[in-house]
Design a protein around this nucleic acid. Structure first.
Length: 309
DNA sequence: GACGCGTGGAT
DNA sequence: TATCCAAGCGT
């Protein structure tokens, strides 16, 4: 980073746009994340985007490196059993993401010549790739000029453009909101999207925004309005202790930690508080395809026992 | 549109 | 210690 501001052309009427400020700011201040390096493949970008869904950057860096070293192409991962994929996923959380990435890799290998698609609609047709991830891959891996809207971008737009403290629920209009902020130049458009995300992740954060460090403070609508408090609906607090999520996590942790199939007793020991809840959660893991029952009564990670498809 | 889905660091 | 929150997706 630290490159000089390479004459980002201002709008034809001479007005300085948001992109005129944020693109150079990004080039000077962006974190040096491994998936942003120029040698990163589209597959590497896709893997990073899936891992980063609801998971902080700091916890993704090392698993991402190991993942790309082990499975440098979609076909490599496609050939691995799901059990290997789930163990490599480790404790990143939301393991259904790993299963969907596995399925996406198989589809890319089988139907797309092992090349990560560049078309938003095609990307969205793949498992685990939704509105955000499809556009992130199209923009960051393939340089397309498409709006990329995640929770950071929605917060930045809510504040800087709409003058609200928080973004509220995601809406279809979010894409159009951001599209008008993108510069005409395709390459700069992708950088602008990355800049909006970076600003939201490092400066315009949810709690305790560092407005003194903000490059667009002088044109922030929220600032101009005196930074009024959020008066919209309050998000429901996440509960954790005793939830099915916790129980599922415990059960899966037993499977991941074992070298092979485990007994029903081993899973029962993972959650003694409420046997009914434990049974219900194990069943939901079976439904999700995260666990497989064996004929002898034991349980295994999918594909682990050699029972292919 | 609301809900369920893991995990762990920050405050 | 408890709560908040983190580059969403599928149902």
């Amino acid at each position: 980073m630290g490159t000089t501001t390479s004459a980002t052309t201002a709008a034809t009427d001479g007005a300085t746009t948001l992109a005129d400020v944020l693109v150079p700011w990004f080039r000077a201040h962006a974190r040096d994340l491994p998936w942003r390096r120029p040698e990163t493949t589209a597959w590497g970008v896709l893997v990073s985007e899936i891992m980063l869904q609801q998971t902080p950057v700091a916890r993704v860096e090392e698993p991402w490196r190991a993942w790309l070293e082990r499975w440098p192409r979609p076909s490599a991962m496609a050939a691995a059993p799901a059990s290997d994929v789930l163990r490599a996923w480790g404790k990143l959380g939301y393991p259904r993401r790993a299963l969907r990435l596995h399925a996406a890799a198989q589809a890319i290998a089988a139907d797309h010549d092992d090349v990560v698609p560049a078309d938003v609609e095609t990307l969205e047709s793949l498992p685990g790739i939704g509105t955000y991830t499809a556009r992130a891959v199209a923009a960051f891996a393939h340089g397309q000029r498409v709006p990329v809207v995640d929770t950071n971008v929605r917060r930045v737009v809510a504040r800087a453009v709409h003058g609200d403290a928080e973004a509220g629920a995601a809406a279809a209009r979010d894409l159009a909101d951001v599209e008008v902020l993108l510069p005409r130049e395709t390459t700069d458009a992708a950088t602008m999207s990355a800049a909006l995300m970076e600003l939201g992740a490092t400066v315009c954060v949810a709690r305790g925004p560092r407005c003194a460090d903000c490059p667009i403070l002088d044109r922030c609508a929220w600032q101009h309005r005196g930074r009024p408090a959020w008066d919209g609906p309050v998000r429901k607090a996440q509960t954790w202790a005793g939830t099915d999520r916790q129980v599922r996590g415990r059960l899966l942790d037993v499977l991941r930690g074992a070298p092979g199939p485990v007994t029903a007793a081993a899973l029962e020991a993972a959650w003694l508080t409420d046997p009914g809840q434990r049974a219900r959660c194990l069943d939901s893991l079976l439904v999700d395809g995260l666990v497989e029952p064996l004929a002898d009564g034991r349980f295994a990670l999918p594909g682990e026992a050699g029972d292919v498809g």
